[in-house]
Design a protein around this nucleic acid. Sequence first.
DNA 1: TATTTAATGCAACAATGTTGCAAAAGTAAT
DNA 2: ATTACTTTTGCAACATTGTTGCATTAAATA
Lengths: 125, 125
Amino acid sequence: MKSARNTTAKTEIQELIASSSVALSHSEIQKSLEGLCDRVTIYRVLERLLEEGFIHKIVNVDGVVKYAGCHSCSAKHSHNHIHFSCQKCKSVTCLDDVEPSFKLPKNYKVSEMNFTLSGLCPQCS
Amino acid sequence: MKSARNTTAKTEIQELIASSSVALSHSEIQKSLEGLCDRVTIYRVLERLLEEGFIHKIVNVDGVVKYAGCHSCSAKHSHNHIHFSCQKCKSVTCLDDVEPSFKLPKNYKVSEMNFTLSGLCPQCS
DNA sequence: TATTTAATGCAACAATGTTGCAAAAGTAAT
DNA sequence: ATTACTTTTGCAACATTGTTGCATTAAATA
Ligand SMILES: [Mn+2]
Ligand SMILES: [Mn+2]
Ligand SMILES: [Zn+2]
Ligand SMILES: [Zn+2]
């Protein structure tokens, strides 16, 4: 039985993501932390926060990986919402209320979805 | 006025992607070509094929970039179809006929979409 | 305070993608 | 076929992102 520990790195990163209105990348987090901890530690903390269900991971259309806080998921992650990626300000936002619908051919079994729209966000349009 | 040239590398890569039922990654293409050309050349050929509208790029949920032939787009790319990523056989397939619908908040201007579902493909389920 | 072990820092590595530049190859005119 | 022009290629060098092993540090609990 492994028990998680509250470290400054974990606390800082968790609060950073929780208080951000947009999803953050590893490098953005690193800049914000200003040398508080090592690069590798950030990766490992993010991994832990993912496992613990505090954050979720978003692979943007340009390949950039971002992290955002979880709102409506408790035990299991359930992210069937759309993400919006602004081509101008590069922000990635969770549109928690927007759930897409579609009709899939038979014999496909879905367990996860990743929907991202690109364009201009309200601030940039 | 720059005029494109038909090279063996370009022809081979184009045919490889066109004849594949699933999307291919750079490394998969490189393996198939068996040293026909340099790593960098493959990147540059893919870039050209994208610009010329022969293929489209897919960033999978696991971050792996794949390329697939374009079917219904002529001048401009228009990819509003869903991609399916099999967690078992790792194949990425274009579901050209499946178009999702959703209701976006005001003031968001969409110019591109990237929808990927993960789970088990018909062969693996 | 002492013990336990999770978490960190550091170095080293791997994968993926980019850039500059000289050499090679495709295209069209001669 | 040869020439001239320009695209394309190969190679080396580099950047970014992410991973792993291992010794050290530091939480949590007794
Ligand atoms: Mn989200
Ligand atoms: Mn497709
Ligand atoms: Zn914006
Ligand atoms: Zn499969």
